[in-house]
Each structure stands twice: as structure tokens, then as C-alpha cells.
Amino acid sequence: MRVTLTYAAAMDRALEIDVTTQLLDLMASPSMAVGDEMTELPVAVYTDPDRFAREQQHLFAGLPLLAGLSGELPAPGDWKLFEPPGTSLLLVRGDDGVVRGFRNACRHRGAPVVEEPSGSNRSFTCPYHSWTYNRSGELVGVPQAETFPGLCRETRGLAAVSVTERAGTLWVLPTSQGEPFDLDTHLGPFDAELRRWNLGDLHYFDRRVHRIAANWKLAVDTFTEGYHIPNLHQNTINMFAANGLLLANSFGRHHRQAVAMRCLTDSTEGPTETWTGFDDGGIGFVYLIFPNTILLFFGDHAELFQVFPDGIDRSVTVQSLYSYDPIETEDQRIILETALDFFHEIVAMQDYRMAAGVQRLIASGANETYLLGQCEAITQSLHRDWAAATG
């Protein structure tokens, strides 16, 4: 299936031409190897409770997490919930254009201030007792205020959490209290790579949620290699992908895969300056953003997958779709809805079905280790980095 929209926010041409050249060479001499080693992975990485507890502490509480793209909050008053393990955070764009983060808990009795995933509000009123907060998190309304003698509203605003908006991306440090955090160190050389994509120009469309009976790392694993594409996706993705052929590049703990599509050769018949491989659907880019996020770029739209643990053998993935152009017509909406449903179905019924099957069979004791080959080098790298980051 191919959907068609105009790619208005042109990608980095130097990157496109370089990747196109390398992919054409790869298609001429196919090889799935993207690394030099084979390694074994103990199945306990998906079941060990001590490891899981350290992941909660060091990865999901202690690192900056990609909370979304700026296009989700384009105007003052726009807000979304971001819910990493164990907490619920409210991100809202203020009247000054700054995105702020707050704990989604009323300072009266702790009820959630908002319950829907997103919206746009002039203020936020707790549904329990109607305490009201403005877009800056300040407490501005207390019914029957005379029954709270000595209440200091200045100290009863929503509890702050730290948010950084950079180059069209939104980052949150879940354990913070509004103080600045070190995003530069977390991103390292990946910062320059993210800036290639004009992410601030993307337009949020909609989201879907996956809930699967599998450890969160198994959910991420499915995006880390092309080895499974000719087999698991034989009648879906592989109908337009070139048998899982891809290039792999690493930027510290973050990674990029450039996936070759069968139609790439059709867009590269003329001089290099006329190549339109990405725009024509000949290349797909898959970014693995440490520790839990996958960002995909296709010629006609982008998708974000945010993977969170929901227990040692359960996980939740929020899948969001973005358009490169403003969404103004019903035809555009139909195209984007079709694309979102298509990829949601593939991930749910193919990738995540396999992940849940692996998790189920771990308990049988059939395997003590799993093998990762040269075609799964990014999978190897992520597991090494997850282990290192959790001690």
C-alpha cells in the first residue's frame, strides 16, 4: 500500500543522496549484515525482576524521555498527557508559547486534573472538587475558599516537572521538579541528526495504543532489524520493502536505519541532483531513540512509537502519526487514517504477536539464551546500552 501526500518540509538532501547511493550499492550486492559479531542474549533480560526494577529507576525515571513532537501542541492552551511508568504528566503550551510540564494531580486531594489524552483549554478544572489552574499551573480557583483559612495559593499550583523543547521535539525528565536537565549529554551526536528533519514543521494527526503481553524490550526489539521483514511481513511490508535490506548508523546510544524499498531504482535513473528516492517512497528511515522510542519517516508521513513497561511481562506502546503538510481536507484525513490503521494493524498482528509469543514461551524453559546475528547489530547495541545504563 502506498499513500500519497506532498512532502512540504524537504529532508536533508545531502543525507538523502548519500543514503540513496549506499542503498543502490546494497541492492546490487545484497547483504543483511550490518555488524561484525554474533552474540547470545540470556532470556532473563525479559523476566528478571531485579533488572526490571533497575530499568524503571535508571531508564524511565532517570533519563530524559522523548514525550512527543511540538506539532502535538501547536497553540497556547494545547495540552497532552504523557504517562511514563508510575506517573501521569500534563504538558501544556502556555500563553507565552512555552511548553511546561506538571504532575497531573490536583493539589487539593490528588485527583487527576485531566483524564483525556489531549485537548485545548483556557484553564484546567479538577473534576473532583473544581479546583482550577491556569495554563501556567497556578491555582486560580477554589470553590468555598473561605473553608480553607490560611490557604496560600502561590504554593498550591500544580507540581512542576522539567520540559525542554528543542528543534520540534519535547523532552521530559520524569523525576524532576522544574529544574533544567542535561539534554545535550543524553543526545550527544544525535542532536545534529534530529535537526536534519525540520520536526517543528510536522502536523499531529492521531494516535493508537497497543497493549501487549510482552516485556517492553521485546516490543522495541521488533523495530531493530530487517531480518524478519521477508518472513513475518511477507504479504505486507515486504511487498514494497526490498527484502529487509538496510543501512545502520549509530550516534552514541541512538541509532538510524535506512530501509531500501523496491521502487528506489525507479527514482534514481537520472543525474544525482534529480533523485527523489525518499519523496517517492524509495527509502524509509527508522530511528531508535534511547531508551524506548522509535521515530519513522516515510515519503508521505512520519510515525512515533513510544514504548513503556506496564509490568515485567506487559507493555504499552503509543503510536502517533504526523503529516508533513497542514491537514485541511477530508481527503487528507482519509489518507492519513488509512495509513495509521494500516501500520497499526501490521505492528499489532505481526510484530507484537511475535513478541507476545516469545514472552509466553520463555516460561516454558525452551531456551536459556537467544542468538543475535550480524543482521541484528542494533539489537545487540541497544541491549548492551540498556544493561550498562542500569548497572
Rank of each mutant, 00 (worst) to 15 (best):
Met38Phe: 10
Arg256His: 14
Val43Met: 10
Arg384Ile: 05
Leu89Cys: 06
Ser123Phe: 09
Ala213Met: 08
Ser31Arg: 14
Asp313Glu: 13
Ala214Tyr: 00
Leu296Met: 09
Leu151Tyr: 05
Pro174Ile: 05
Arg51Val: 07
Arg122Leu: 13
Asn243Leu: 11
Leu26His: 13
Pro117Cys: 14
Met27Glu: 02
Phe343Cys: 03
Ala389Met: 00
Ser162Arg: 00
Asp78Gln: 12
Gln144Tyr: 14
Asp280Ser: 06
Thr175Trp: 09
Glu179Phe: 01
Thr276Trp: 07
Arg256Trp: 13
Met239Pro: 07
Thr185His: 08
Asp279Pro: 05
Ser31Tyr: 11
Val3Lys: 14
Ala260Asp: 05
Ala260Glu: 11
Gly137Thr: 00
Ala8Pro: 03
Val34Gln: 15
Gly71Arg: 00
Asp78Met: 12
Tyr46Asp: 06
Glu368Trp: 03
Gly311Cys: 08
Leu90Asp: 11
Thr274Ser: 14
Asp182Asn: 12
Tyr204Asn: 03
Ala366Lys: 02
Gly71Asp: 04
Asp201Gly: 04
Ala214Ser: 05
Ile346Ser: 05
Asp50Arg: 07
Thr132Met: 14
Val307Cys: 06
Gly97Gln: 00
Arg109Trp: 04
Gln22Leu: 01
Gly391Thr: 09
Gln257Ala: 12
Asp191Arg: 15
Met1Gly: 15
Gly252Met: 10
Thr6Arg: 00
Phe251Ala: 12
Gly270Arg: 04
Ala145Thr: 14
Lys217Ile: 04
Phe60Val: 10
Ala213Arg: 15
Thr338Pro: 03
Phe82Arg: 08
Asn367Ser: 13
His301Ser: 00
Trp79Gly: 06
Arg166Glu: 05
Glu37Asn: 14
Leu295Asp: 10
His301Leu: 01
Asp95Tyr: 01
Pro149Gln: 10
Pro117Asn: 13
Ile327His: 07
Ile294Tyr: 01
Trp386Thr: 01
Gly311Gln: 11
Pro127Ala: 12
Arg109Tyr: 08
Asp313Cys: 07
Tyr46Ser: 11
Gly71Lys: 03
Phe278Gln: 01
Thr224Ala: 13
Gln350Asn: 04
Gln144Asp: 15
Arg153Ile: 05
Asp191Gly: 11
Pro309Trp: 01
Ala302Arg: 00
Phe240Asn: 00
Val92Pro: 01
Ala192Val: 07
